[in-house]
């Protein structure tokens, strides 16, 4: 399930790089890289990895206008869906501040929730193992609440969102090092 999702996301990101590159400015590198940099920013925080950042805008010759429009629409939809494939958002130690790199993706999730009022999402807030369990429980809640507020401000309905904090109880990865801790300070969106 999650593997095929990732493969799909990978394909979408590729198609995004290709079409966006030829349709707007014709400069294949720039727009592709702009998206790619977002993705790699998430990667550095240990997020879902997919390879869309590679230079995929290779060739753009021979498309008709109609084909371009269709491709652009498909690309935009694909881009939104590719963004929504990212459902985990990371935080710095003892903060609940949403990182700039996560904003676009969260806006895509908010738009999706706004367009699908029947859709429910559960936000699970987590902390790394350092510090105390009860404080981390409150910190995980504050992170989930920060994401909830962001989604609501961007169009989601409060009634669609449920939040819960697990504090440091459910680490994404085991390990006592900076990289593990970075992957454990997170909010996960779980669509039902």
């Amino acid at each position: 399930m999650s593997l095929s999702m990732k493969t799909k996301a990978f394909a979408m990101a590729l198609s995004l790089g290709l079409v966006a590159g030829c349709s707007s400015t014709g400069d294949t590198g720039e727009t592709g890289d702009a998206y790619g940099s977002d993705v790699s920013a998430v990667d550095q925080q240990g997020g879902t990895v997919y390879g869309g950042a590679e230079d995929a805008g290779i060739s753009a010759g021979g498309l008709t206008d109609a084909e371009r429009d269709r491709a652009r629409a498909a690309a935009e939809q694909a881009a939104e869906e590719a963004k929504r494939a990212i459902t985990t958002f990371y935080f710095d130690f003892d903060t609940s501040e949403i990182k700039p790199a996560a904003r676009d993706v969260l806006i895509a999730h908010a738009a999706f929730l706004a367009a699908n009022p029947g859709q429910q999402v559960r936000l699970e807030g987590h902390a790394d193992e350092r510090g105390t369990k009860e404080y981390n429980l409150a910190l995980g809640e504050r992170r989930a609440n920060a994401v909830q507020r962001f989604l609501i401000v961007n169009g989601a309905n409060r009634g669609q969102i449920e939040t819960v904090s697990y504090g440091e109880e459910k680490p994404a990865v085991m390990g006592t090092d900076d990289s593990s801790w970075a992957q454990n300070r997170r909010v996960e969106l779980i669509f039902k």
Partner: peptide, 9 residues
Amino acid sequence: LTLSKDGNA
């Protein structure tokens, strides 16, 4: 008890 029913912890 710590409760967040009124907004935050």
